[in-house]
Design a binder for these strands. Structure first.
Length: 277
DNA sequence: CGCCGTACCTGGAGGC
DNA sequence: TGCCTCCAGGTACGGC
């Protein structure tokens, strides 16, 4: 499901295609897609706007508009896709269409489950966006900063990684993969990671997210790049979705547990908790 | 304030 | 074959 690498993949694919183009019209086709904004204001802001650039913040895609207009944020949530097309799509799940000019075309927001949203960054954006934490692939994400965030939380570390106001962009798949790469037990309380584990987890997050960006994300079911192609990282997942299979590092059976209502996949042998002293 | 559980939603998988 | 139930999960929100 779309996490930082998938969203980054979408932004990188759209940037050269959308830069310098104009939005003729934004067509909202489902009442839930603009539930965090006034739909009329959203359509008005997009109407005739020249696209200034594309950025990513956490799992949000930011469409910057010229002429002093506020940016439009897109969140794909579980099943959202931004698909380019020249004409109308046959899908019954098209929730919004950016009609593009010069050259003519469409950027379709397709979303089976209608969890995804479009909203204006005009000061009325939801709290979740405003309070996003540090970008894990930026130079701001230092070991010291990560250690400070972990130290102030007693939440289990894997659940901590899902909290967007701490570190932005990590979802269930990469949280599991990073804990495995760092040999960190997912149930370990965040503040109890020692220096070594903090360093390993910090490096693992950067490595796993970086590799997944290079591979253009993970497609388990719904994720598609804007040209409709899947991501390539799925076959490189070592623990996610692999309950009962041997750990590629130590051959112990991968376990599935539930933390805060979410599945966690991990290796009980090589992700052992710290020894008591 | 921090943390937790639940709602939102639909397609696909699995049971019988 | 078909009907039923359950599960996936990011974020908003209510409750404690």
């Amino acid at each position: 499901l779309p996490e930082l690498p998938e969203v980054e993949t979408v932004v990188r694919a759209l940037r050269p295609v959308l830069g310098e183009r104009r939005i003729q019209r934004l067509e909202l086709l489902h009442p839930r897609v603009a539930r965090h904004s006034d739909p009329a204001q959203l359509e008005e802001a997009a109407h005739g706007a020249a696209i200034g650039g594309l950025r990513r913040r956490g799992k949000y895609i930011l469409l910057e508009l010229e002429g002093g207009r506020p940016p439009i944020a897109v969140h794909l949530r579980m099943s959202g896709q931004l698909l380019l097309s020249s004409g109308p799509l046959a899908s019954p799940h098209v929730r919004a269409v950016f009609h593009l000019a010069r050259p003519e075309g469409r950027l379709n927001f397709v979303d089976v489950r209608t969890f995804g949203t479009l909203f204006l960054l005009d000061g009325s954006e939801p709290e979740g966006f405003r309070r996003l934490g540090v970008e894990p692939l930026s130079s701001d994400f230092t070991v010291e900063r990560f250690a400070g965030l972990l130290a102030s939380s007693s939440t289990e570390v894997k659940s901590f990684l899902l909290r967007q106001e701490k570190v932005a962009g990590i979802g269930n798949i990469y949280a599991c993969e990073a804990c495995h790469e760092a040999k960190v037990h997912p149930r370990l309380p965040a503040r109890l990671l020692g220096r070594t584990r903090v360093q390993r987890l910090h490096a693992a997050l950067q490595a796993v997210l970086g590799r997944a960006v290079e591979q253009m994300g993970t497609t388990l079911s719904d994720f598609r790049r804007p040209d409709g192609e899947p991501g390539n990282y799925g076959n490189q997942l070592l623990v996610y979705g692999r309950e009962g299979e041997p750990c590629p590092r130590c051959r112990a059976r991968i376990q599935r547990i539930v933390q805060h209502g979410r599945s966690t996949f991990f290796c009980p042998r090589c992700q052992h908790p710290p020894r008591r002293r």
